[in-house]
């Protein structure tokens, strides 16, 4: 308990600076930047309104408070029933503010939603699942889960990533605050959005539409890679699954349990699609949709019983014995 509090507070102090921040006020992509500027406009307008109206209210309350020792304390104040001039002015001024704000907003809506798509944009299909993310790169033949890799986009030669989004089950929402606003993933419906990170790095986010028990641990990790790193990542992901003789025992266990009806390992008999693709699971930093680091201890514990980290996760506890558990864990760890 105490250690939880301290580590939490420590990261509190650092969060403005660290890469784990998800503040909308630290934008790193065009959509997030344009939202940031319009939000600054709105914030200044509303602050001014608050100061003016709040100030007048405060003044009225202090100035016109009832004073008991006043000479004519018992007398009623003069009754005023209204004034057309004043009332007109506080109708017209707000209308002008609204018109101004609306025009500024309409510009941002159009420039974000109707932005022309450059020819060398990357296409990624995002499918929301209870409680993990599937990412497919149709033109590159890559399927992966939970950790999205996209290229950094140089403003002089933009290479944005266009996401085509839908859901396999309930509603979800894709939200990486430093890159863009959120877009929902809705079954039977296709939505789109785009990302163009301006600097390389890891951008965090999480599902923002309540989707069931483990909505809280449906975390998002977006890796913005430099062009070279991204090219290298593509090459690695396009390889078929590693076949290593040292893990043959674990592979046998994997292929003789129900694992294969839910998981795919490309090039093997495992072709399930209910759970995340495991072809290169060992190349990922985290498992269970960003819940825990991808260490062999965590991997083993998760396979033993997913509820150890994610109670309510749709992967059942597989009740493997210790020996098989070790073997499967060792096998998955080779799937670089």
């Amino acid at each position: 308990m105490a250690s939880q509090i301290w580590s939490g507070l420590a990261s509190q102090v650092g969060s403005g600076l660290t890469s784990t921040s998800t503040s909308i006020f630290a934008p790193k992509g065009t959509p997030a930047h344009s939202i940031f500027s319009i939000s600054m406009l709105v914030l200044s307008i509303t602050t001014v309104i608050f100061l003016v109206v709040g100030g007048l209210l405060l003044y009225a309350l202090l100035r016109f408070r009832h004073r008991r020792n006043d000479a004519n304390a018992a007398q009623e104040p003069p009754q005023i029933y209204g004034s057309n001039q004043i009332e007109l002015s506080w109708t017209v001024i707000p209308i002008l503010i609204v018109v101004m704000l609306f025009l500024a907003t309409a510009r941002v809506i159009l420039s974000t939603q109707n932005a022309p798509k450059p020819a060398d944009a990357l296409d990624v299909t995002v499918i929301g699942h209870q409680f993990w993310w599937e990412y497919r790169y149709p033109k590159l033949g890559i399927v992966t889960a939970n950790e999205l890799h996209i290229p950094v986009s140089d403003p002089k030669h933009p290479t944005p990533t266009y996401l085509t989004m839908s859901s396999a089950d309930t509603d979800h929402s894709f939200w990486v605050p430093r890159l863009a606003g959120k877009t929902d993933l809705i079954p039977n419906r296709v939505n789109t959005m785009w990302l163009d990170p301006e600097t390389a790095g890891l951008y965090l986010g999480q599902c923002a539409q309540y989707c069931g028990t483990q909505h809280a641990k449906m975390l998002i990790r977006v890796y913005a890679d430099s062009q070279a790193d991204f090219a290298a990542w593509i090459v690695r992901q396009q390889q078929p699954a590693v076949e290593s003789s040292s893990a043959i025992e674990g592979q046998n266990v994997f292929q003789h349990t129900a694992c294969i009806s839910c998981h795919t390992v490309a090039g093997t008999i495992a072709t399930g699609r209910f759970g995340p693709d495991l072809t290169h699971v060992a190349s990922r930093d985290t498992i269970a949709s960003g819940s825990v680091p991808n260490t062999s201890a965590n991997l083993r514990s998760f396979i033993d019983n997913p509820a150890n980290f994610k109670p309510g996760s749709l992967m059942p506890a597989m009740h493997l014995n210790d020996h098989d558990l070790d073997a499967v864990t060792a096998y998955l760890a080779t799937l670089k």
Partner: peptide, 20 residues
């Protein structure tokens, strides 16, 4: 909320700076 915390989550990550 401004720092990216969604509603309807039963718990949250310690490293986001939302704790205080």
């Amino acid at each position: 909320g401004l720092e990216g915390m969604p509603r309807r989550i039963y718990t949250y990550e310690a490293d986001r700076g939302w704790m205080m």
